[in-house]
């Protein structure tokens, strides 16, 4: 890594002040240090935000669960209350990386992580996300890339948690300047759809404060498909949530990950589920609708089939 200065912060305000325009926040460090070791990023100052008191607190209120930005994935995985309230969240977090990663990785960092596209992550290649003006994956090796390819960059969002949090309707609290923005997961990734240089909507200096998950008696479920059994990125991931009363779904959401710049859902697909007793046939129709506008590239057509299968399985899992 290139040389850098280091400071620890004790409040979000001092974190932001210290980091300024040239610094970066150091949480778990898996993403940041990995990029710095390839000299893809070279911030002059790292601000360790883990010591901020209460920043990793898990809080239950009457209407929601609130997770501080530096809550580790291991904390989430081991939390009995969260597991009971949001089984899908538990399933998603248990599959992130390895235990060594989950012990230090944070929910904020997981959401804010940069693309895993091997062109982006390559020390000697320049693409949209590194100041260039091409997507090297589009005509290249794109087996792991998006199948919704309207954006000029076809690198997909790979955060497992983003998919299930989208299904749960979570809100991400972000400090920008003097304001606290409250974003849906869609909004957190909206900029990645429009701007091929963006990984998400966070700007320099923006600091995720907390993630709020409404506790509104929704069920949740999460599944992913990978090449290896464990410690592998998802080829496709899928999360579903709904209120289920006597077999009938309402307020349904079915979301796909690793297929688009943001967790992917379609209102019409969600609405097809509402009021229904979901069976395999309906689930398959929902899957078709959700994947209808997929425009896979040369080497990832297979993701469409996997996505459809996961939609069906996740909905049936939700129902059971």
């Amino acid at each position: 890594m290139k040389p850098f200065s280091y400071a620890t912060a004790l409040t979000p305000e001092s974190a932001r002040e210290l980091a300024g325009q040239e610094g970066a926040y150091l949480a778990g460090g898996n993403d940041l240090l990995g990029l710095m070791k390839e000299s893809i990023l070279a911030p002059k100052l790292l601000v360790n935000i883990k010591p901020i008191p209460g920043f990793n607190a898990i809080e239950q209120t009457a209407r929601s669960w609130i997770l501080g930005a530096t809550t580790t994935l291991a904390q989430i995985e081991n939390h009995a209350g969260l597991r009971q309230a949001f089984p899908g969240l538990h399933q998603a977090v248990a599959e992130v990386g390895s235990l060594q990663i989950r012990n230090v990785a944070t929910i904020g960092g997981n959401l804010a992580q940069h693309s895993r596209c091997w062109y982006f992550r390559h020390r000697d290649l320049v693409c949209w996300k590194k100041g260039g003006d091409t997507c090297l994956a589009r005509e290249g090796e794109n087996r792991y890339h998006s199948i919704f390819t309207g954006c000029a960059c076809i690198s997909p969002v790979v955060s497992n948690l983003s998919v299930v949090l989208a299904a749960l309707g979570a809100t991400v609290h972000v400090r920008r300047g003097d304001q606290t923005l409250k974003w849906s997961i869609n909004e957190l990734y909206a900029q990645a759809w429009d701007d091929p240089s963006a990984h998400h909507s966070l700007g320099s200096g923006d600091l995720i404060l907390k993630i709020e998950i409404p506790a509104d008696s929704r069920r949740s479920a999460y599944l992913q498909a990978s090449e290896k059994a464990q410690f592998d990125w998802a080829l496709v991931s899928c999360a579903a949530s709904a209120q289920v009363d006597q077999g009938r779904f309402s307020r349904s959401r079915i979301v796909l990950g690793a297929v688009a710049p943001a967790p992917y859902q379609v209102n019409e697909a969600n609405q097809m589920l509402d009021g229904q007793a979901v069976d395999e046939a309906l689930a398959a129709q929902v899957a078709d609708r959700l994947l209808r506008d997929a425009t896979p590239v040369a080497h990832n057509q297979y993701k469409v089939a996997i996505a459809k299968a996961l939609v069906v399985r996740t909905l049936l899992l939700l129902r059971s």
């Binding site: 280091y6 620890t8 150091l26 460090g29 898996n30 240090l33 990995g34 790292l46 360790n48 883990k50 291991a74 235990l99 060594q100 990663i101 012990n103 230090v104």
Partner: peptide, 19 residues
């Protein structure tokens, strides 16, 4: 490079010494 930090396994290569 797995070591334990406060009893928890972590990758020592992805931790800074200073932190």
């Amino acid at each position: 490079c797995t070591v334990l930090i406060d009893g928890k396994p972590v990758y020592a290569c992805m931790q800074l010494a200073i932190e």
